[in-house]
């Protein structure tokens, strides 16, 4: 229907609407996660974490389906669900939150090892050491509790725990935003290496465009719970076709360059009628107030904007300067 779905996708959302109580925070989002990495970009409040929770099966969609392979997640039987749990693992923003403060690294990773399989004590210890080594940690850290480790170490333990069940896909929810910049870079190195070595698919949720550029072949830009632009990450970043993607890109500070200037009224709420972005859009025209833009194909990506061609034009100008 959307033309974006492929048979090989491990995980996908199909016209998913998510709500807390009466308030819908994600509207009819469709996307698939396959090999090569998929980015989900948006500012805080755009619904990206909510979407991640739904994809992890922690939140039931109000309408639409989350698909694991070709099956509906909500309709999975016991064994199907166990299989899904083994295949899809999360890495959350903050390792200190994702690890039980009362458990040592070995106990946290051990829990993952024993949940689906029986495994002897010696074998378990050996696997924990192996996994710690895989994520670049000294196996001697096994007996430490989260508060005895640094932020970067905690995040590595959380990644080791996720890898313990040998998943096919990781859902990375802002995996580096709680870390120092230098530590961020090393965690990204690790994720990049793991993805390549283990042919792991991943969905990377972030507000940091540089991160997506490194790790994701395709990306989706989420604004106010709607996908406004999706396509190859490079194209999106080099020549955005949606004014929101453009604004996000131009807000990235560059060393030695001009400090970034926010364009449009960033504090404006999403509009109720017409295009949700129009109140913040420097290009908003009459048409944007009257009708909500449909998803359409422009320059090799899907974009929901009446003036996508003009945005491309602008982005091209900025590129040449």
């Amino acid at each position: 229907m959307t033309g974006r779905e492929t048979g090989s996708a491990v995980l996908g959302a199909h016209r998913v609407t998510l709500a807390y109580g009466a308030t819908a925070v994600v509207h009819e989002v469709s996307l698939t996660v396959d090999a090569g990495g998929v980015g989900l970009i948006g500012e805080s409040g755009s619904g990206k974490t909510t979407l991640a929770r739904a994809l992890l099966g922690l939140l039931r969609p109000r309408s639409g389906t989350i698909r694991y392979g070709s099956r509906d997640l909500a309709a999975l039987d016991r064994t199907g669900r166990a299989e899904f749990r083994r295949a899809v693992q999360p890495v959350f923003q903050d390792g200190s939150e994702a690890l039980d403060p009362r458990m040592t690294a070995a106990a946290s990773i051990g829990e993952a090892l024993t949940t689906h399989h029986r495994i002897g004590r010696d074998r378990r210890r050996a696997r924990v050491a192996e996994l710690l080594d895989d994520v670049g940690l000294d196996p001697a850290l096994a007996d430490r509790r989260p508060h005895q480790m640094s932020g970067g170490q905690r995040q590595r333990v959380a990644i080791a725990r996720a890898l313990a069940v040998e998943p096919r896909l990781l859902v990375l929810d802002e995996p580096t935003s709680a870390l120092d910049v230098t530590v961020q870079a090393r965690i990204l190195d690790l994720l990049e290496r793991l993805a390549a070595e283990r042919s792991l698919g991943h969905l990377l949720i972030t507000h940091n465009l540089g991160v997506v550029d490194r790790l994701c072949r395709t990306s989706h830009v989420l604004f106010a719970g709607r996908v406004v632009e999706s396509g190859p990450t490079r194209d999106l970043l080099v020549r955005p076709a949606h004014p929101y993607t453009l604004a996000l890109r131009d807000a990235v500070p560059r060393l030695g360059g001009e400090p970034p200037r926010a364009s449009g009224r960033t504090e404006a709420a999403p509009a109720e009628t017409g295009c949700p972005f129009r109140l913040r859009c420097p290009l908003a025209a009459d048409r944007c107030r009257e009708e909500a833009p449909e998803d359409r194909e422009v320059a090799g990506r899907r974009v929901a904007c009446h003036r996508a061609e003009d945005v491309l034009e602008r982005a091209g100008h900025a590129q040449r300067q």
């Binding site: 929770r53 992890l56 099966g57 922690l58 669900r81 166990a82 749990r85 083994r86 899809v88 693992q89 999360p90 959350f92 923003q93 903050d94 939150e97 994702a98 690890l99 039980d100 403060p101 009362r102 829990e111 993952a112 949940t115 689906h116 959380a158 725990r161 069940v165």
Partner: peptide, 26 residues
């Protein structure tokens, strides 16, 4: 609502074990 409980749910740890192992001690 904390991350380690979500993380245990994503592992497929059965609810009674999550309560006993993670929620109760904390």
């Amino acid at each position: 609502t904390r991350g380690f409980v979500d993380s245990a749910r994503c592992l497929g740890v059965p609810a009674p074990l999550i309560v006993f192992r993670h929620v109760l001690p904390n």
